[in-house]
């Protein structure tokens, strides 16, 4: 009888301990946000939020901290990445979920999974070796010169270290993120819906366009948002190829200076200038809040679409 009591006590103790650890780890993200808020508080109380967000001057020595050029840098690079990645990823996810034979799928899927694990500095090296020279050549070529007349394409910066280079590298980085989620969502569409559409004489593509994608749309959107937020917070690959010039970019060939690069580049000097550390950690907080909102929204949608086991 005593043994049973002991076993029951062990069970209850284990339940309480594991529950406590689970609660603690689940609240880690809140804790991170609070810690960042506490350390960056001085910058948020001494300056109105509008000045921080929309001022274009970043001069720590004169204690002018405007995030605007950096926010725009991040947005530019991320948007270029998404413009490149979204159509490609959607087509690949549709192919993998709807068309690929079992053999092709078994070959392609592991490759995509493996590429999700490649470290970001490796993407950075690839960007420096291959993408930057390519962009440089494009900018100098006759195509670049004729494009230069269009807005968004003017060439002021011949180095190749540019928004476009950063966007290409980021796009390749988010391929596996978007593809794996979107593919799962498309696969989760009930087969009966497809069969009904085929029975009406629709081609496979028509079925995908009018039935499958319409059904999977919220989940596909969530996959895109997840990719966006991954690109938004990426540091090392971007810092190596975007040029890091703190000015609002005007064209694809301009250099940019994303928020993440700002934090990573200035950590060495930030303790020596008053308010500098608060400003940088405030930038980290801003990044965290934006990424969290995107992530939370996307995950809530996905939770409804793909049932958790």
């Amino acid at each position: 009888m005593k043994r049973v009591a002991l076993r029951r006590a062990t069970d209850q103790t284990a339940k309480h301990i594991t529950a406590a650890v689970s609660a603690a780890t689940s609240l880690l993200v809140v804790f991170i946000a609070l810690v960042l808020l506490v350390r960056s508080w001085p910058i948020f109380v001494t300056r109105p939020l509008s000045e921080l967000l929309f001022s274009t001057t970043w001069k720590p020595l004169q204690s002018a901290f405007g995030y605007y050029p950096f926010i725009m840098g991040t947005l530019w690079v991320t948007c270029v990445a998404m413009v490149i990645a979204v159509p490609i990823c959607l087509l690949v996810s549709i192919y993998l979920a709807e068309y690929a034979s079992r053999r092709v799928y078994a070959m392609v899927k592991p490759l995509i999974d493996v590429s999700a694990g490649i470290p970001s500095v490796i993407f950075g090296i690839w960007g420096v070796i291959m993408v930057v020279p390519l962009v440089q050549k494009l900018a100098a070529s006759s195509i670049g010169r004729s494009l230069s007349r269009l807005p968004l394409f003017e060439v002021h910066n011949p180095t190749g270290y540019s928004v476009l280079a950063g966007g290409i590298v980021l796009a390749v980085m988010v391929f596996p993120v978007i593809i794996s989620v979107a593919e799962e969502v498309i696969r989760a569409v009930p087969t009966g819906l497809r069969e009904a559409s085929w029975a009406l004489g629709a081609t496979r593509w028509q079925t995908i366009k009018y039935v499958v994608l319409r059904h999977a749309a919220p989940g596909v959107l969530a996959a895109i948002v997840l990719g966006f937020s991954r690109a938004f917070g990426e540091t090392m690959a971007v810092i190596m190829v975007v040029g890091n010039v703190p000015r609002v970019p005007r064209s694809l060939f301009d250099a940019a200076y994303p928020l993440t690069a700002l934090i990573a580049n200035s950590y060495g000097e930030m303790m020596s200038i008053p308010l500098y550390d608060a400003a940088l950690l405030g930038a980290a907080l801003l990044l965290l809040v934006i990424v969290l909102l995107f992530n939370l929204g996307a995950r809530l949608v996905l939770m409804r679409m793909i049932r958790y086991r």
């Binding site: 780890t25 880690l28 991170i32 990426e234 540091t235 980290a284 990044l287 995107f294 939370l296 995950r299």
Partner: peptide, 15 residues
């Protein structure tokens, strides 16, 4: 808990 872990997964490494 799963939602919290998924959200934590998305936190940028620089943060």
């Amino acid at each position: 808990i799963r939602l919290a872990m998924d959200v934590l997964w998305g936190v940028p490494s620089i943060v």
